[in-house]
Design a protein around this nucleic acid. Structure first.
Lengths: 160, 160
DNA sequence: TAGTATTTTGAGACATACTCTAATTAAACC
DNA sequence: GGTTTAATTAGAGTATGTCTCAAAATACTA
């Protein structure tokens, strides 16, 4: 049985997994089969915001032996390493997503309160704001989380 | 026994509770004794970021009969009505805070990763950003949550 | 390649923040 | 004051997420 679950030979995915393996190794972690499957699953769902439970369901389709605890641990680890993004919408579940390889992992979210759609938006408009805060409050900003709530384009259109 | 737990006759607090009662009534809710105690407790802790459990502890000092579930419900309700702010730092507990009456309840937070201090910051620097998003993505922003992580002034000084 | 040390995993028990239920109590409105 | 409606209490229940520990996989060394 192949170690790699991607039988189609998707070059991009291989490149992507290689890159992530490098980061794992640099931090003293191993790219296990389970971690690879989680990564590939996320890769196949770029732009979606999945809960640990959802990831577990998807992952089990590839390897039904993988446990929920492993998925939780893996998502947490990948998130700590900055390989994936964690998103908390205050609805009692934490979501994770993987970004495009090229873009920075850090971005904002537009959350539609009508249909629940979550849009990831890459934008560094906040860099200036960070500097302003540094000066004004003597606070050295190292990271930020920004969520915009509102109504998305398509819901606005439906409302007329 | 007095209905009002504030025996000192703090005019500001009375004014404050009156204002909040008005908002509750306008939305079809009653200002019960329990809700008043929760409000007064928060009022006495302006600027702090309390968990439901902490609020419950404080509230029980005034009226030991008040249950935890009521505190949870009250905090949720007040938050929905915009009377208090909800803050999620992703550490498994939701915190609540009450703002000064004069200032808008919506503000940003600076979270020090060294000492855990949470600073509330009133600033409308994001208004411009909201407009930019509206134009760029056709997304009508109605609210936003912004958290800055980093190192606070006093921790920076300690580090030298 | 065999042996050893270190990580990682899996299953399920566990922890904990929060919510629901149903009977009781309190508040609002004539 | 009596009626209606909303709110509260206590504790059982729910759900997300974590911990434990034996077993397995991986990396390291000879």
């Amino acid at each position: 049985m192949s170690q790699n679950t991607n039988e189609l030979g998707d070059e991009l995915m291989i490149k992507f997994v290689d890159l992530y393996e490098k980061t794992l190794k640099e931090n003293g972690y191993k790219l296990t089969n389970q971690r690879r499957v989680v990564l590939e699953t996320l890769y196949n769902r770029v732009g979606e915001h999945l809960t640990a439970e959802e990831v577990h369901q998807l992952v089990k389709m590839v390897n039904s032996e993988i446990g929920l605890a492993t998925v939780y641990r893996t998502l947490q680890l990948l998130s700590e390493l900055g390989l994936i993004d964690k998103l908390n919408l205050d609805d009692g579940v934490v979501r994770y997503e993987i970004g495009e390889m090229e873009t920075k992992h850090r971005h904002h979210h537009l959350i539609c309160e009508e249909c629940g759609t979550i849009m990831g938006v890459d934008d560094d408009m906040l860099d200036a704001l960070e500097e302003a805060f540094s000066k004004k409050y003597g606070f050295k900003v190292t990271d930020h989380v920004v969520k915009f709530y509102g109504v998305c384009k398509s819901c606005l259109q439906k409302q007329g």
